[in-house]
Nucleic acid binder design. Sequence first.
DNA 1: GTCGTTCCTGAGGGTTCTCTGAGCGACGGC
DNA 2: GCCGTCGCTCAGAGAACCCTCAGGAACGAC
Lengths: 222, 222
Amino acid sequence: MLVVDDEPPIVEVIAMALKYQGFEVATAATGKEALQQVDRIKPHLMVLDVGLPDLEGFDVAERLGVAADRVPIIFLTARDATEDKLRGLEAGDDYVTKPFSLEELVARIRAVLRRSLDEQTSAVLRFDDLELDEETHEVTRAGAAIELTATEFRLLRYLLSNPRRVLTRQQILDEVWEYDFGGDARVLETYISYLRKKLDAHGPSLITTVRGVGYALRAPKA
Amino acid sequence: MLVVDDEPPIVEVIAMALKYQGFEVATAATGKEALQQVDRIKPHLMVLDVGLPDLEGFDVAERLGVAADRVPIIFLTARDATEDKLRGLEAGDDYVTKPFSLEELVARIRAVLRRSLDEQTSAVLRFDDLELDEETHEVTRAGAAIELTATEFRLLRYLLSNPRRVLTRQQILDEVWEYDFGGDARVLETYISYLRKKLDAHGPSLITTVRGVGYALRAPKA
DNA sequence: GTCGTTCCTGAGGGTTCTCTGAGCGACGGC
DNA sequence: GCCGTCGCTCAGAGAACCCTCAGGAACGAC
């Protein structure tokens, strides 16, 4: 996994998140450096900022060629750069707009890897009778469809990708909200409340509060 | 293990706690000194105060580079420094806010080491028929789930990480409560009592009182 | 621009946890 | 066996924590 951005804090926060997920991570600050690294370590995937000092991110992509076996790239791009999205996006690539949530980025990475690894892993996260499809964004509980908003979906996806494990409030805020979110931590409680209301309409409670620590998905004690 | 802080009492209390856990500990009071020490002794982990007189803690981290093989760091930071959290946090790092409990710090250290040692050690602490999972916060005795409050959990985790060893009241207070806890030492007795009540409901007594000294986990004399 | 949805903030209230105090019991020295 | 000290347990006050509801701001669709 290669992370390329000229802002050290961004590189660091991404590298940390990915390492925590168990990926091996290398970094680069410039386009030139990135090309060298690709040559040297042959990463399976690359997270690439569009706005680099020397080469534009897309130029980096171009230099790597359009071959089907070129390393998949996830572009980081500013929110308003709509037209940019089209350029450089090859089959197997994807993009994320800044500022992004780490949870979102990791989800995209998994999706891209899944595609390039030929459907080895499923796109459906499961826990008890709850299912979440990362590709179609469909969520069902005991077969019944559940409508979630974007934030609710990210939150549930993060919980589902760490089943049974207690996630601290801080972890959840760092991952699910934008990485520089400075707001009130009570948003989280509000959204947990929303999720519970929607999920628990179809069965026993799945989200457990661990007082003083955070939240966890727990199988209902039947 | 390298401990860096400009306040000698803090350094001492941490260094002592870590030594007691069996780590080799070196110390430094300034950023400059810290960098020298890192060079000299190549620590496996570093506990680093953010507010140092000469260099900011994060600057120290920066000087060490962002290489994947840089020493993992646990930052000590004031409680309200929310935005600081992102700066400097690399893969494998973590942070603890002051004032902290030593027990918490040691738990974080173990978690960080576990990650950097590639899952060599498990997150489950065991003693006799008692199990405590640090990730899910689940505690079972002879297979039966036991609900613990946050403080009970920290206390039991500390006991379990030092099985059979007698821990003095002072040690336990320092570790499980905040390191400068000034309150009444009888809290501890109360919590030992709570723990015993919950644990011994499923089997013979595991926590032994060592009169005049402290407490220890002991296998029940069958 | 208007409308509808989504996201975040704020406040109130209920629940649970933590710590304190006091009485009782247990242990050990003599 | 007696007495002093140390430890155990219970109950309760205060605080911390968390949940929920309501409303306003921001965003996007038409």
